[in-house]
Design a protein around this nucleic acid. Structure first.
Lengths: 121, 121, 121, 121
DNA sequence: GTGGTCTAGACCACG
DNA sequence: GTGGTCTAGACCACC
């Protein structure tokens, strides 16, 4: 559980948590079958409301990255590397389609986009 | 004035308008010195509140893309192509920084990002 | 009639005209008894609405700097240098009181104000 | 929160509020990290519309004097005394440029301006 | 609870 | 005619 929260960001906190944990799962930094900390404990550690944590957990479950066993806790889903890769591409693509359409709306060519990304990277 | 509003989008309406008009100005689709439609007329055409339009116009003015003359209307700023280019890169960079940090969080290399963008483009 | 108008300024146009002409009268750049150009002509020269010019002339008359003779035109008032000086101080003081109270509201000492004015001057 | 509103002033209400609060922050009368009253409460207290308060808060945020955390409130920014001083001079300079150009238009020298300010102070 | 957005009116100064 | 400001409600997402 290594999460960095920014209060000033425009992104809602629950989404920041969701993105970071999902990235960690997909990168294999959290092993399959691992039990996520109980909501109450996570809330305490991150000094956030339980509601906020719950919302992040729900998002993760909706994506199939974790599953809840009532009374026992939330487990990281045991996915094959193919499934993982598929989920990763799904999540990234969803974002990518939106992003590129934004860049294209300014009349940028694909090469100009690459140029700018290189600068940022 | 060719604006498409999505009520289901997460983006606030005023920002959708801002983005579309700013893109049109930057692409040169709206010529310099052109008078934007009066806010009341725009509000009526798009079936929006005056304040929503006003907010979009204010953003445009803050970016230096238009200037308003009270009692006369809102004019597209007369910028050099260099200034336009600079403003364009500014706006895109702001978005790009956020986007790439998202991709990076999944462990994507810059080449993998290029690969994906090519597919989408 | 040497007037510079800024459309982008926040100051209303009629006030810009008023300020510039009154300053010219007070500095003696316009001689006493001089006939101001007819409203219609001034409006044409400055490419402004007649209403705008009329409003500026009215302000000048309210300040006693010009007087209107119906059918003949607007004349620069024939004031003694004492009267001129008094009017000048009146106009400046009115502005000054407001300005200094603004600076004071930020907790500036009089010396700090002088320092800043020197920079600007 | 000690705000005095003048309905007769030419200044828009939201700007009066902005100026008073920004002055208080800059003078250190409101401590860093302090939470501004919720916009709805402030609106009620001052008997103003929520939007009017919101506009004032937005100006403060644009100047970097406060930052808002959605769902939590608006906090006074934690700036170093240098940053504060810089912001103060910025705001005053902006006003000062306009003011001095007005005085200069009447042919006043810098010393005459000092003389008058001393009188008023 | 908080702020973010939006509506459908209104009055005013300016041109 | 224009934009500038303001009101008194409303619904939403987030915490």
């Amino acid at each position: 559980m290594n999460i960095a929260i920014s209060n000033t960001s425009e992104k809602p906190i629950y989404q920041q948590i969701f993105e970071q944990i999902s990235a960690q799962i997909i990168k294999g930094e959290i092993e399959k079958g691992y039990i996520l900390p109980p909501i109450r404990q996570a809330a305490k550690e991150l000094r956030l409301s339980i509601i906020t944590i719950k919302k992040a957990w729900e998002e993760l479950e909706r994506c199939g990255l974790i599953y809840t066993v009532t009374g026992k806790g939330c487990f990281v889903a045991e996915l094959s590397s193919d499934e993982i890769r598929q989920k990763r591409d799904e999540m990234i693509m969803k974002q990518l389609v939106e992003d590129t359409s934004y860049y294209k709306s300014f009349g940028l060519t694909i090469d100009e986009i690459f140029e700018l990304i290189k600068k940022v990277y």
